[in-house]
Computed example of a mutant assay.
Amino acid sequence: MSDVLDELVALLSLETIEENLFRGASQDLGFPQLFGGQVLGQAISAASQTVEPGRHVHSQHGYFLRPGNASLPVVYQVDRVRDGGSFTTRRVTAIQKGQPIFFCSASFQAEEPGFEHQVAMPEVEGPENLLSELQLFGRHAELIPVPMREKILCAKPIEIRPVNPGDPFNPSPSEPCRYVWFRADGPLPAIHALHKYILAYASDFGLLTASLLPHGASFWQRHMQVASLDHSLWFHRNLKVDEWHLYAMDSPWSGNARGFSRGHIFNRAGELVASVAQEGLIRRREDRT
């Protein structure tokens, strides 16, 4: 594994403080607030550590309550809601400075046979000849605010290659669809739970962007206030996040200063491994500096 990927694995591993109580370090990615994907992945990690090994997470539904502080650790309190015959349910609250910044419910199930079907994987260009998001941002380095520049342009644990990149600093209106290939930047241990933690972490990158595309707006425009409000994630099968996956995103609606986006994540074999949905704040503020 690369050093940055080692750091991500450590970030998602968590320290056990007491029964049902865990602490995770925070990662500063240069954003104004703590990256939501961090708390998504750490919350699933915390819940998983209270569940019998034979059951695997299949869904997570959470709300972002307050902006997190990337300079402070996060404490995760797990409530063992139910251990049923087929499903296990956990509720997780992420806390900083005595206040909840995020909470979610997560459900776990053992492997079980059943009916199977899925949507088809979109036919898009493969990742081999695409530029990475890091390379694309490097072309506009002078436009990235100085306090964020080093964090945005440094090595990342997740490699992202957009299929249909636009110019985030000078966007034009387009269809509310976005496709990116992504993978962990190096091989990972064959631990199914770890690959799901990292997928949860990666699922928050750029999802809300799809709801901005029809309006020619971008997170990088100074007058835009953009923040995740909630996040739902469904795992459909085990996966290897150190292999390429296609993240197909679309936004069917925006209104009332909110945007709604959804995503399907496919492996290279065309199998649907996860589905995602998110609503976020997309507010235009001319007074914003």
Rank of each mutant, 00 (worst) to 15 (best):
168 P>K: 00
137 F>N: 11
196 K>L: 01
151 K>T: 03
161 R>W: 09
216 G>D: 07
139 R>L: 15
199 L>N: 12
207 L>I: 15
178 R>I: 11
153 L>K: 00
240 K>R: 13
201 Y>R: 10
221 Q>S: 10
250 D>T: 10
117 H>A: 08
116 E>C: 04
154 C>K: 15
230 D>P: 12
141 A>I: 08
172 S>Q: 14
252 P>Q: 07
146 V>W: 02
144 I>H: 10
218 S>L: 06
239 L>N: 04
226 V>E: 03
160 I>Y: 08
166 G>K: 02
138 G>R: 12
124 V>D: 12
221 Q>K: 08
148 M>H: 08
161 R>I: 08
142 E>H: 15
210 A>H: 01
114 G>M: 07
184 A>P: 00
176 P>V: 14
146 V>C: 05
236 H>V: 01
171 P>H: 06
196 K>V: 02
114 G>S: 14
239 L>E: 03
217 A>N: 09
168 P>H: 03
116 E>W: 12
189 P>H: 09
187 P>K: 15
210 A>I: 02
178 R>S: 11
141 A>N: 12
175 E>Q: 14
230 D>K: 14
201 Y>W: 03
164 N>T: 12
179 Y>Q: 02
163 V>A: 02
156 K>V: 09
162 P>H: 10
250 D>L: 06
237 R>P: 02
152 I>E: 09
123 E>F: 06
188 L>C: 02
158 I>M: 06
191 I>K: 14
224 M>F: 05
159 E>D: 05
197 Y>S: 00
219 F>T: 01
219 F>M: 02
114 G>R: 13
187 P>M: 06
160 I>L: 14
226 V>C: 11
142 E>Q: 15
144 I>Y: 05
251 S>K: 11
201 Y>N: 01
137 F>C: 12
193 A>R: 11
244 W>E: 08
247 Y>H: 05
225 Q>F: 11
130 L>G: 10
